[in-house]
Amino acid sequence: MSTDSALLAVLLTIVTASTPLLLAALGELVTERAGVLNLGVEGMMVMGAVAGFAVALTTGSPYLGIVASALAGAALAVPFGFLTLNLVANQVATGLALTLLGLGLSGLIGESFVGQPGVRLAKIHIPGLSDLPFVGPLLFGQDVLVYLALALAVFVSWGVFRTRAGLVLRAVGDNHASAHALGYSVIRVRWLAVLFGGALSGLGGGYLSLAYTPQWIENMTAGRGWIALALVVFSSWLPGRLVIGAYLFGAVTILGFFVQGLGVGVPSQLLSSLPYLVTIAALVAISRKRGGGGDAPACLGRSFVPDR
């Protein structure tokens, strides 16, 4: 096989490996921008995966599956929102519990779906463009969620930094007392951010069971929710850097496999730890150079109780 096709296989695989991370991390970024730390990303992802798979299989439509995965992620975020925002429960503990709940509940719901061949989300095909050699399949022949994830990154970046709603979101995350004093409903803004985060985590999970490996098996997210959480921190809560981080992580993972396949004898343990090391190093380096690191939302993880 030619080097071109080997390279293309690697690049295509990088895109699919990065997309679920990007989706889930974008959602968490918005949640954290509102000052809420939701450690339940893994749980919401896995719920999205099972719901997307189940709906796609029963209706035959992967697109309905996508919708269902977003709804399921958001639905699992509801108890989190209620406990942490309305009842002022500890966000860390509640988020961890949410992951466990999601893993257990998805296993229960998905029991009858284990071992069933799934419905694959088709890759788009633009006549002419998708048929171009090399760049065609890479740029114009992915599935819709790949493009949706990148579009969402642009949308979130614009929304958070260029709109009034984004300003309110950041105000709530940076200083909830002031935002409250100015008359904004901190709880309502946070609720919306939590639901948005849940929906995107769900989408990330849905990507796994609909496009990445169209099947359902318990715990199929295999820790990707935690990687998404880490990416948010290392991207300094900036969507642009998040895209770089997610793709870098995917790229180094896949290149690790590629190098192993070449049989050059680099220890595989080193290769599988490289994605973490490289991504962290790169994002920290970017932050230092731009002088813009460390801008965590000041109220991240802090509960808000309005003075009456």
Binding site: Q215, N219, F257, L262
Partner: peptide, 17 residues
């Protein structure tokens, strides 16, 4: 057990011939 990684590895290996 990591369906995603296993699939990735499979794709890369196929790409390598």
């Amino acid at each position: 057990y990591d369906p995603g990684k296993e699939a990735d590895a499979a794709k890369v290996l196929i790409g390598q011939g």
